[in-house]
């Protein structure tokens, strides 16, 4: 009984904290079904003619959770009237997917190597991996540009994708996870005559399931939201990712901001839900074989 009560309390805490977290989401989703005109009225402190007649002197921004008039107008505007939106969405996918896959493979190999490597200075090298990750973005934009110039990839997605693939964060994350793995696992496998690739696939991979899930999730989100690099490397606006477009929307086109955000969020959500399950299942299967 007391066990159940405890569980109830922890649920209550979780639910109430979650509510704070999803409040912006709720606003975004419900407001995406509001007409553009209502948004114009709600999100402004300008007094309308009616306010002046009613002698209202102050006007607050109002956030309505329930729209006073349900409408698909914003979605229609975004999806049908602005075909460029779909192009930008595709661009986002073209940048994000290669980074997620490439980074996962590279990080997995490197993290594994760091775990089993018997080199005297591997901790120093690992430390360098972590330190370099600490560089703030502004500081590396110029060098990145110089390197992209030298490699002649300045005006292609490669200038964004390649640094993403080799980002040290994945190596760091997966290696920290592998530290929990008892060394005996590797030794036992080696005695059984498994080679290193077999150990990686059959022993390490299943163990790293949640680490890999976390890594893909976070990488996906990070590159889905990427803005700065895209601004510098991409010149043609039909090649820009959607994130760049959306980062500017708050200033002007607020009438469609909510619907645009909802569409933009849909893919990461789908990825988080469906993608994760399949990924985990895939890893489990590979472990059983």
């Amino acid at each position: 009984m007391s066990h159940k009560a405890k569980e109830m309390i922890s649920y209550a805490i979780l639910v109430s904290i979650s509510l704070i977290f999803i409040f912006p989401l709720i606003i975004t989703v419900t407001n995406s079904f509001v007409t553009e005109m209502e948004i114009g009225l709600n999100y402004t402190t300008k007094l309308s003619l009616f306010d002046v007649l009613d002698q209202v002197s102050e006007n607050f921004i109002s956030m309505n959770i329930i729209p006073s008039q349900f409408s698909f107008g914003q979605y229609k505007e975004v999806l049908i009237n602005q075909p460029s939106f779909i192009i930008l969405l595709m661009n986002s996918i073209k940048i994000t997917v290669p980074v997620v896959i490439g980074n996962l493979v590279i990080s997995l190999l490197s993290a594994y190597a760091f775990t089993i490597w018997e080199w005297k200075y591997k901790e120093v090298l690992f430390f360098v991996y972590v330190i370099v990750m600490l560089m703030p973005l502004q500081a590396v934009l110029v060098p990145n540009y110089i390197i992209a110039e030298q490699l002649n990839i300045k005006e292609s997605y490669l200038a964004i994708i390649l640094p993403g693939i080799f980002s040290p964060f994945g190596t760091f994350l997966l290696r920290q996870g592998l530290k929990n793995m008892p060394m005996e696992y590797f030794e036992a496998a080696q005695i059984d005559g498994a080679n290193k690739i077999q150990v990686l696939v059959y022993i390490v991979l299943p163990q790293m399931k949640s680490g890999i899930a976390a890594l893909t999730m976070l990488t996906f989100i990070e590159y889905w939201n990427l803005v700065e690099q895209a601004i510098i490397f991409i010149k043609d606006y039909y090649k820009e990712p959607l994130s760049v477009f959306l980062s500017r929307i708050a200033d002007g086109n607020i009438g469609v901001i909510f619907a645009a955000s909802c569409i933009y969020m849909f893919l990461p959500f789908w990825f988080l839900i469906v993608g994760q399950k399949n990924l985990e299942k895939g890893i489990e299967l590979s472990g059983i074989k």
Binding site: Y145, D251, G252
Partner: peptide, 24 residues
């Protein structure tokens, strides 16, 4: 064309600066 957009102006300056500081 989008109106005078503070964010876009900022982006433009960032882009120009990156190029200039790279010696280009």
């Amino acid at each position: 064309k989008g109106e005078d957009n503070a964010q876009a102006t900022d982006d433009y300056i960032n882009k120009i600066n990156t190029e200039l500081m790279s010696g280009e």
